[in-house]
Computed example of a mutant assay.
Amino acid sequence: MKQISLIAFLSICLFSTNIFAQKNKKFDIIAYYTGDSKLIDEYEVNKLNQIIFSFCHLKDGKLSVDSTKDSLTIKHLVSLKTKNPQLKIVLSLGGWGGCEPCSNAFSTADGRLKFAKSVKEVSDYFKVDGLDLDWEYPAIEGLPGHLFQPADKPNFTELIKILRSTLGKKYELSFAAGGFQKYLDESIDWKAVAPLVNRINIMSYDLVNGYSKVTGHHTPLYSTNPKEESTDRAVEFLLKAGVPAEKLVIGGAFYTRQWKNVENINNGLYQAGEHFQGADFKNYATTYTEANGWKYFYDEKAQAPYWYNEGTKTFATSDDIKSIKAKTEYVKSKKLGGIMFWELTLDSFRDGMVNAIYEVKTAK
């Protein structure tokens, strides 16, 4: 009897382990996309699992597609699913400057219900797979001048609840989460929200942003000191908060942030400077060249590249092929839900960042 019980127990354990392993084999490559209906055809869509159309906005409290051009783009994105059965198309609300009315609109039960119903209507009309909320940020300051208030935190929870109940289980529901500590601590009730969403897209980039007067890694995998923000720091925080690993998606940056008037100390890293517009990944090979005065460096501890130009006293930080591969390996090792990035039109059409992610994802 004991032997039979033991065999049964071991069988159950093995079965459970297999289910868990299968569950964690799901690794999504998720692209935010700001392009039109034609440009998407230049990319290797077959390597993507989800495309998040960016952005829709609020109009009179409802989810609104801004233009005929955007409508055509969404319809074309949905049509790609015919050839790509793994692909899901999701609409995103907001963005850095696109959620000004959010705090006010979502402050009442009626406002939240009105929005949720509009999401269902728009989703059904376009036959998309769901919604990604990109409210930057509940309860803390985002774009200067945008309303934020302490009530945003519980209101966000209530918003997620009504969205899930209105959309039902078949629709994808995710949100873009700040990857920095203040957001992690103050913006979201993780225990209440995590069970209701399919995934949390951690914006583990812009961790040193355009408002910073000091250079640094803007999208590092690891912190090099206890005060430094990083992808791993955000992931570990959320895992400890009880968020399931398979619901966590980390972020990659397909663009640099740059600072000028940076002295040649420590190759420009962690030095004073003035932020200005960076470059897109597809232009790195012609921008950050020795002929242009740039030197390339890679911080092995942070798993992050950076560039310094002594002649122009300019510093640049981003992801590149090496660091995005490191992030992808990290996703696999931690059994996370995948990797997302901002954004597809910044990549090369072939042999770029998406391809690098895909190669690591599919490697045995």
Rank of each mutant, 00 (worst) to 15 (best):
T219G: 14
S223L: 01
N209W: 10
V193L: 08
T215E: 01
Y183Q: 14
G179T: 11
N225D: 11
T215G: 09
F156T: 12
K227S: 12
D189Y: 13
R164I: 14
T231K: 03
D206N: 11
M203L: 12
Y171A: 14
F180G: 02
G168A: 10
A177G: 01
I202N: 00
V197M: 01
L159I: 12
G178Q: 02
L163K: 06
E186N: 14
E229K: 04
A253S: 15
G242N: 04
K213F: 04
Y255Q: 01
L173V: 13
K227P: 00
T256A: 06
L167H: 05
L196V: 12
S212I: 07
P220Y: 01
K182G: 08
L221G: 08
L238A: 02
A177C: 12
T166G: 02
L207R: 01
K260W: 00
G210C: 08
Y205P: 00
A194Y: 00
T219I: 01
G178N: 02
S230H: 09
G210L: 08
S223R: 06
E172G: 09
G242V: 06
V208F: 08
T166Y: 02
G210W: 05
S174I: 12
D206T: 11
V193C: 05
L248D: 01
Y183W: 15
G178T: 09
E186V: 03
K161A: 14
E186M: 08
L196C: 11
L173C: 09
L238G: 02
W190A: 04
L238F: 04
T215F: 06
E158W: 01
P195M: 07
Y255E: 01
L167F: 14
V249M: 08
Y183H: 13
S187D: 07
E246N: 10
N198Q: 13
E172A: 10
Y183I: 11
N209F: 06
A176C: 13
E158K: 12
V208D: 03
F237A: 05
I202V: 14
D232E: 14
P195K: 04
D189S: 15
L239C: 05
P220T: 07
K182Y: 05
L163S: 10
Q258N: 15
F254C: 13
A194V: 08
I250K: 00
A177S: 11
K240S: 13
L196M: 15
V214S: 11
I200Y: 03
H218M: 14
K240H: 07
V249C: 07
P220L: 05
S223Y: 07
E158L: 13
K182M: 11
F156E: 07
A253D: 07
K213L: 10
A253F: 06
A176N: 06
Y255R: 03
W259N: 12
S223P: 07
T231N: 05
L196I: 14
N209S: 12
W190K: 00
V214F: 10
F180E: 10
H218P: 00
K161G: 06
V243K: 00
F254H: 04
A192V: 10
I200A: 03
V243G: 06
A194Q: 05
Y205M: 14
T166M: 05
S230T: 11
H217L: 09
K161M: 13
F175H: 00
S187Y: 06
L163Q: 11
Y183F: 13
P154E: 09
K191T: 13
E236G: 04
A194W: 02
L207T: 04
